[in-house]
Design a protein around this nucleic acid. Structure first.
Length: 375
DNA sequence: CACCCGTGGAC
DNA sequence: TGTCCAAGGGT
């Protein structure tokens, strides 16, 4: 493309722009454009030496695993109100933690959160380890979270690689290897880029860049502080990265959920086992969930009488690796009509139970409005 | 390494 | 409407 003489081309670039490293450019951008988040110490305070509370960083990082900032904010505030310190969380009733986590998903995180708090309280004197290795030895803390806490809470020069950073790095270097196979390579690239000064802010800057500028679709490269170093921007194909493998089709499973109420409106609930899907959470009794739509219509509990179940229609709930189509049935029964390992929960306290979203949907289908706020 | 593990929002 | 995806970890 032919270009006429432009003023911009005629002007010499300032030395600061032509010689700064990508990390320095990114930190300058972060100083100006960082997001303000409840668990974050913003750059002026961070540069003045103020460190965030490791408990806050750990709690937010675990909540943010595969979960959006928007969804986490309210849960983060609730947890700090209920349990202001890691010692408080360690001393909490696990059932109360599951109730507080209900709706956020990936419930193994909540079980590991509690285990981790107990380990920090009993084995580390209530203080989080300040190294990657020490952190990674704790339940629920893997490669990413250990590096992130070490960098953000303790200013360690650790290589933080999450989904955002993968996207930024894969575009900067046009990494053609598909994820997750490309992770070791990308980790080396991040490590080489991470500065000794302000590594915590650098990690957060990479994530902010990935979430606001270097987005999965329609990245705003014109506003990117390191576009001059970006090979994908130069090639004009940033959206092609990171390269991913095709994913498998999602199977459908079928089942039936039984919402039983007593004369006072209490609902019969059960507790799921600690392992597997929705582990440790509360549910209404139901059949197994199988791939055969014709199966599973026999109630999985006994009773002295046989209730007449009313067909309430169905719900569809999409999990990570399958879609669930649940038939919902309701009956008002005598309390001795159900003999199982559960309990009758009064209507007033139903919403506060450790019910995952799929179960709230099913109960709502049988008892419309039962989770409506009554204030 | 492949698979399991939730949910809600954006396009 | 379907598809993708979001600060991943455990096994």
């Amino acid at each position: 493309m032919q270009r006429s003489t432009s003023t911009a081309e005629a002007l010499p670039l300032p030395d600061s722009l032509s010689t700064q490293s990508p990390a320095a450019l990114l930190l300058d951008w972060y100083d100006r454009s960082h997001r303000v988040l409840p668990w974050r110490i913003t750059p002026p305070m961070a540069k003045a030496g103020k460190r965030p509370d490791p408990y806050h960083i750990w709690l937010s990082e675990v909540m943010l695993q595969q979960t959006t900032v928007q969804a986490v904010k309210a849960y983060f505030a609730k947890f700090l109100t209920l349990w202001p310190t890691v010692g408080d969380l360690a001393a909490a009733d696990t059932e109360e933690v599951m109730k507080a986590w209900a709706g956020l998903g990936y419930y193994a995180r909540a079980r590991n959160l509690k285990k981790c708090a107990e380990a920090v309280a009993s084995q580390h004197g209530g203080c989080f380890p300040d190294t990657e290795e020490g952190l990674k030895a704790l339940p629920g803390i893997g490669d990413y979270t250990a590096a992130a806490i070490a960098a953000i809470a303790f200013n360690r020069q650790s290589a933080v690689l999450d989904g955002n950073v993968e996207r930024v790095i894969s575009r900067l270097y046009r990494v053609e290897t598909p994820v997750p196979a490309a992770r070791p390579e990308m980790r080396r690239l991040v490590a080489a880029m991470t500065p000794a000064d302000r590594p915590g802010d650098f990690a957060q800057a990479m994530m902010d860049l990935g979430s606001t500028i270097c987005t999965p679709r329609r990245p705003v490269c014109a506003l990117c502080p390191i576009n001059a170093d970006c090979r994908a921007f130069a090639a004009g194909d940033p959206e092609r990265f990171p390269v991913k493998l095709a994913k498998k089709a999602k199977p459908v499973r079928y089942g039936t959920a039984y919402v039983a109420t007593d004369a006072a409106g209490a609902v019969y609930l059960c507790k799921r086992g600690d392992k597997g899907l929705l582990g440790g959470m509360t549910e209404v009794p139901g059949t197994d969930w199988t791939t055969d739509p014709g199966q599973n219509q026999t109630p999985p509990f006994a009773g002295k009488t046989t209730p007449l179940w009313r067909d309430c229609g169905g719900i569809v709930h999409v999990f990570t690796h399958f879609e669930l189509r649940l038939a919902v049935r309701h009956a008002e029964v005598e309390r001795d009509a159900i003999v199982a390992n559960g309990w009758w929960e009064p209507r007033e306290t139903l919403a506060a139970q450790a019910l995952p979203t799929v179960m709230k949907k099913a109960i709502e289908k049988a008892l419309p409005g039962c989770f409506a706020k009554t204030s």
